[in-house]
């Protein structure tokens, strides 16, 4: 029970912190939010827009700070994120819904593949200490993980799109293919996603390989592994049911916690490929100083990571009888 309360506290506090950051930041600008916004956007947008931006940021002249904070929180919890400046007069939630499916499809799938594949390679590498997966791959991935995601994307474009011409260089689909639920469209989308997905997998897999390998090595020194060998169990059973299943436990929550970092890198990859997902919209938001969109994206990704942590918590509890009892 105490465990559950602690986790709940963590989720609520994180969400609150993200929301509050969004509320406070505009107020830290020199001259206060209104002055700063008016000078910055002077002449570029109509007064009505300023009004709706003020709603999004919780700025109301007739209220004191606490009242503003409360009504802002109310708006956020209702899912009212105001109007996007860059895509005026679209609502922020509408803009995000345009981009979200692309990102979920590309970044979500690629991240999951990287995690599963990386975990598997980590398991096999630790199992065969001294083999290729153990001695060659880890140092290579230590080096590749030090390169910016987006730069790897640039190199992939240079090699596979520009030089070899195997894959399209940019965008989520070809302009000549109509967006409908047809095989032509789907295959076109898949075709466009291969290179960015490959980039994301290539850059994020190293971390999973290394952490899983190191956990496995620690686990393989446990007595229950020795016992399993003594019992004459088959190597695959020892590897998965005895070693990997124990070694992965701390990794699940770790995976979820670091998802924010991975998604961040993946968003930059989207930018490089001009992929119509959240990353590209985030760049647009930066260029347009579209604060409401930027902040909502920040919020959205925070919530996504929190959801992932929650799922990982459940998975861990499902796999580990000891945490099940603490919960």
């Amino acid at each position: 029970m105490r465990y559950l309360v602690r986790r709940l506290e963590f989720f609520v506090v994180t969400l609150w912190a993200a929301l509050t950051l969004n509320f406070i930041l505009p107020r830290l600008l020199p001259g206060g939010p209104e002055v700063a916004l008016l000078t910055r956007f002077h002449g570029r947008i109509q007064p009505a827009t300023i009004k709706s931006l003020e709603v999004a940021l919780g700025i109301r002249n007739d209220q004191n700070a606490i009242q503003q904070y409360l009504s802002y929180m109310g708006n956020m919890l209702r899912g009212d994120f105001g109007v996007s400046l860059g895509f005026y007069p679209q609502r922020v939630s509408h803009v995000i819904m345009l981009a979200l499916p692309w990102t979920l499809g590309l970044v979500g799938t690629a991240t999951l593949i990287a995690f599963l594949l990386g975990t598997l390679i980590g398991i096999l590498g630790a199992w065969r200490r001294g083999g290729i997966l153990d001695s060659v791959l880890p140092p290579i991935f230590v080096v590749t993980s030090a390169f910016p995601y987006f730069w790897i994307g640039l190199i992939c474009i240079l090699v596979f799109a520009i030089t070899l011409g195997w894959f399209p260089q940019a965008f989520g689909n070809s302009s000549e293919v109509t967006s409908e639920l047809s095989w032509t469209f789907i295959s076109d989308v898949l075709w466009h996603s291969i290179l960015p997905a490959f980039t994301i997998v290539l850059t994020s897999i190293g971390g999973w390989i290394l952490t899983m390998r190191n956990n496995m090595i620690t686990t393989l020194a446990e007595d229950y592994i020795k016992m399993a060998r003594a019992k004459g169990l088959s190597p695959t059973r020892i590897m998965f049911q005895y070693a990997a299943r124990n070694a992965i436990l701390p990794n699940l929550v770790g995976f979820a916690m670091s998802l924010g970092f991975v998604i961040s890198g993946a968003l930059l990859v989207e930018i490089v490929f001009n992929y119509p997902g959240l990353g590209t919209f985030l760049l647009q938001a930066v260029k347009n100083e579209d604060f409401s969109l930027m902040q909502t994206l920040f919020l959205l990704i925070t919530v996504a990571v929190l959801l992932a942590v929650m799922v990982a918590d459940f998975l861990t509890a499902w796999l580990d009888p000891r945490t099940r009892e603490r919960g």
């Binding site: 994180t14 912190a17 961040s264 604060f291």
Partner: peptide, 22 residues
């Protein structure tokens, strides 16, 4: 610890972008 965990889980790039943009 709670503060640490919150900062750990908050996605850094979007936060950095918001901070840097302001």
């Amino acid at each position: 610890s709670l503060v640490t965990d919150v900062f750990l889980v908050i996605p850094t790039l979007p936060l950095m972008i918001v901070l840097a943009a302001y």
